[in-house]
Design a protein around this nucleic acid. Structure first.
Lengths: 213, 213
DNA sequence: TTTACTATAAAACAAACGTTTGATACACTC
DNA sequence: GAGTGTATCAAACGTTTGTTTTATAGTAAA
């Protein structure tokens, strides 16, 4: 049918825009990314952005996809292993989504940028993605260190874990200059995950000892 | 003398520019900060930026001051206490410079922004400030965990410590939305420093155990 | 065939940016 | 007092940004 052909072609340019936008946004951030560059990469006229979406900001919001991160949490919870193992698995899978350049980690990198340079969409991202996975890790931590821990100390433990992970992405411009040979291949990510996992579990045990002597 | 009067007046507008630039840059980052806003706050004509400095970028470079960070490292090393205590002291003082809004931490905040959104001046910052204090912490870590640790594992330990500290600044837009009541007053910074210190020392001990069973 | 609608294209729009210009007032030298 | 150099100012410059306009094909319905 001709209608189908037309629709699929329409969807094609729309999807091409989205795909290009994801790449350009994750590479340059929201501000530094230009509509002209996105359209150039998508091989699409500049007016298409405001035709299919209404603005650059709406295009940016449309590129966000919280599903991979949220399904990661659900997948981890399905196993019947202990909390320590679940935390190690989470750190591993989270780092994979955050650092692996070959995977479709663009989604995660795109949101990671928001932490440092907030845009008008940050509120939505915090509410729908960051808050849930912070809560997820908080539950794991509480299960590991026991229930006597205070809310403030629990929060600091969660921050310690995320801080270690995020530094590899936020600090990348610096890290690249400090250690030019460092590449985030699978082997390196595994090593990082192992380190952060052991480092954090030991830290959590220490916190647990402090609270329940 | 009239010459002195003239010079001091000149210096006054130059210094006013620098002071305003420090504030605006640390609040908005290099890109988002505008020359017009800086001049407005300094109560100075727009042309003054290119008159006294040659460009916005040179003005930015002139606002940088690595001394507080470097003297921090020297001060810590002067004491004859053990490496663990020195690390705890460093984390405390570093967080004070990084988070305290009342102190003159603008210098540190200004450089912290560079980690996430690099500017043409980043190379200088890494070379003159970040690399030295990374090396400083690396030396402390090596002293704590023993010499058998590999270079890669040493690097990850340093990243774990800095990652935990920097998250409170880089993640502030997110943290503010997650915990709107959280304020970085002296009491809170002390608590954060205590947490990161204990958490990290436990992590380092674990790393040392792994390497020297 | 005519009409209406959709998708795309080139061009122009208004705003904001860093930077430069040209003029003005002032202090100092001779 | 004429001439020189400096600091400041309002104004404009040229560029880039996101967005809008206007026009042009092509398709579907009447």
């Amino acid at each position: 049918m001709i209608t189908e052909t037309k629709n699929s072609l329409t969807e094609q340019t729309r999807e091409r825009l989205l795909a290009a936008a994801r790449v350009v946004f994750s590479e340059n951030g929201f501000q530094n990314a230009t509509v002209r560059e996105i359209c150039r990469r998508a091989d699409v006229n500049i007016a298409a952005v405001n035709y299919y979406f209404n603005s650059k900001e709406a295009l940016f919001a449309a590129t966000l996809n919280f599903e991979p991160l949220l399904t990661l949490c659900k997948k981890i919870n399905q196993g019947s292993i202990c909390a320590q193992e679940r935390l190690l698995n989470f750190i591993h899978d989270f780092l994979m989504q955050l650092l692996d350049e070959k995977e479709f980690s663009v989604q995660c990198q795109l949101m990671a940028r928001e932490l440092a340079e907030p845009t008008p969409v940050l509120g939505k991202i915090v509410q729908e993605a960051i808050a849930p996975i912070h809560q997820f890790v908080a539950n794991l931590v509480r299960e590991i260190v026991g229930k006597t821990i205070s809310e403030a100390e629990l929060r600091r433990c969660v921050f310690s874990i995320f801080g270690q992970c995020m530094y590899y992405r936020h600090g990348q411009p610096v890290i690249q200059r400090l250690h030019p040979q460092l590449r985030y291949d699978h082997k390196e990510i595994e090593a990082i995950a192992k380190h952060i996992g052991e480092f954090s579990l030991a830290g959590l045990k220490q916190v647990a000892q402090n609270k329940c002597p």
